[in-house]
Design a protein around this nucleic acid. Structure first.
Lengths: 144, 144
DNA sequence: TATTTTATGATATTTATTTTTATTTAATAG
DNA sequence: CTATTAAATAAAAATAAATATCATAAAATA
């Protein structure tokens, strides 16, 4: 996994097994896990890793902009190794978080907001809440 | 303050002094306070009110859609009695949260997202992070 | 290989929020 | 206007996410 270690190196972060594992996991998942989720997932392969290490590592990665922290309205943060802007869709039934590709109309919105006086925009977070197709189907069938 | 009690009545919530005070305060502020902030503010006029009551009341108001809960990335939630959709601007220096009036381009974005297959949108949250004019000025002058 | 610096693991602490429970209060029916 | 009941409150304890502490261990580099 060269991309992983090269990115960490670029950012002057020491290449520890824990860091490599955490960033690699985030880089290869689309599930937007919480710190707890990362910890549980990696406990299997790294049984001695501490939860504190997961939190500290996520914080380090966030500071160098290798991961972004998402606050989708739950009690804990989620983490995403895709740092380019994209809209998130959040299913209120199963709590899955999905990525949405860039939309032309969002570019127009950014443009419009950038012209607002009295505020200098640096970045943005856009969340659409609703139900995914699986949950919509279940709801329609009365399973939820 | 008739609006306050009528809205609570409409939602079948008992008109207790604590509830009236909390909703009235949120209804009349633009500051998006936290539960702690509401508590501190109302402690002056309602010294016996418990912080747990503030939390429970905010939860009740949220459930009947009289307030919305905002997670702007801080350690605690903020509350807003404006429940119609609007974009929030968040200053990363002073942490103020500002309301933005509806923008035509946002309507276009909603329209575009509503046509996405496999997802049924119910509501949305849009946060623009950056610096407000006051903080921008301070930054320019090297005060921050 | 030795040295310096930084990261880790284990644990303790902090802090926002929730739960619990006994008591009080609002709504309403008589 | 009083009695009833259902719900809300205050105070305290409990919970859970996140952070801090600190001794040990491991990376980077000289």
């Amino acid at each position: 996994m060269h991309v992983i270690s090269e990115r960490l190196k670029e950012k002057k972060l020491k290449l520890t097994p824990q860091r490599l594992a955490i960033y690699k996991f985030l880089y290869n998942t689309t599930t937007h896990p919480t710190a707890e989720g990362v910890y549980k997932e990696l406990s299997e392969t790294h049984p001695s890793m501490s939860l504190a290490t997961v939190y500290k590592t996520l914080d380090s990665l966030k500071k160098v902009n290798l991961v972004q922290e998402l606050n989708v309205g739950e009690s804990s943060f989620r983490y995403d190794a895709r740092c380019d802007f994209h809209i998130h869709l959040i299913c209120r039934s199963c709590n899955e978080v999905y990525d949405l590709p860039a939309l032309p109309s969002f570019e127009a919105l950014k443009e419009e907001v950038s012209h607002i006086e009295n505020f200098n925009v640096e970045y943005e977070q856009v969340f659409f809440y609703g139900s995914c197709s699986e949950c919509s189907a279940k709801i329609a069938e009365g399973q939820i």
